[in-house]
Design a binder for these strands. Structure first.
Length: 230
DNA sequence: GTCCCGTCAA
DNA sequence: TTGACGGGAC
């Protein structure tokens, strides 16, 4: 009761109530940081390789690896390389032996479609997702990143940053990947542009403010945040 | 839960 | 020189 009176008093003092919705967070981040223009890649093929290379590392390291990969101009040339040769190329991205196998698996799959995304575009969003998840080394996050940025399918990418951010803000966090994804997708319009920007904005925000140890000074989401520490 | 692995800031 | 960082398989 005292708490209610306190809230009423706060309201009378002109405090604004901020609705903690996925849409409101998106709008606020977009106004603050502006369009991010992801994903930086020359082709769908390069984008998908980048999605594997960026697993458990940062974009800076991917760019070094990608520079070496791009010496080989065609997917066929890349496919002919041995695991060791591939691993040497992608060394700067870390976990190079693991990722070399994953890229091999991916290329083996993509080869069935003549390395041509147009031959896969007709598939429905979740059908294509199932295809990608069959590839050894591609899990849900990587699959969704590929669906969104290489195939232009509207899908919300759940990553460690998104989990940390929304948990901290005070959202009821579902415990599984797909439950979280569905929660967000239920609320937002089915727009590739929005999902594209949302993922990028969350990454940006997590690096600038909502880090492991948060930097709350000048945080654009301050008014929305319950600052749940865990 | 453990393993895979380089880069960069401090 | 050390610690933080970051997905998926098993």
């Amino acid at each position: 009761m005292e708490e209610m009176i306190g809230k009423v008093e706060n309201l009378m003092m002109g405090e604004v109530i901020h609705m903690r919705t996925y849409q409101a967070i998106y709008d606020t981040l977009f106004s603050h940081y502006g369009p991010q223009g992801w994903w930086p890649a020359d082709s769908a093929m390069e984008m998908m390789l980048g999605a594997i290379l960026v697993q458990h590392t940062n974009w800076n390291n991917v760019e070094k690896a990608m520079k070496n990969v791009k010496v080989y101009r065609s997917p066929e040339e890349l496919y002919e390389l041995s695991l060791d040769e591939l691993a040497t190329l992608i060394r700067p991205s870390g976990f190079f032996n693991t990722k070399a196998k994953r890229i091999k698996s991916f290329l083996m799959w993509f080869r069935q479609y003549d390395y041509d995304v147009r031959k896969l575009r007709y598939l429905k969003r979740l059908e294509l997702r199932e295809q990608l998840l069959q590839i050894h080394g591609i899990g849900k996050e990587t699959a969704d990143v590929i669906l969104l940025y290489a195939f232009g399918k509207p899908i919300f990418v759940v990553d460690a940053y998104a989990r940390r951010l929304f948990k901290r803000l005070g959202f009821n966090m579902p415990d599984t990947y797909d439950a979280f994804r569905s929660d967000v997708e239920r609320e937002l319009p089915e727009s590739v542009e929005i999902y594209n920007e949302y993922h990028a904005l969350i990454v940006m925000h997590a690096k600038v403010h909502c880090k492991a140890t948060p930097i709350c000074t000048d945080c654009p989401l301050w008014e929305y945040c319950e600052r749940q520490i865990s």
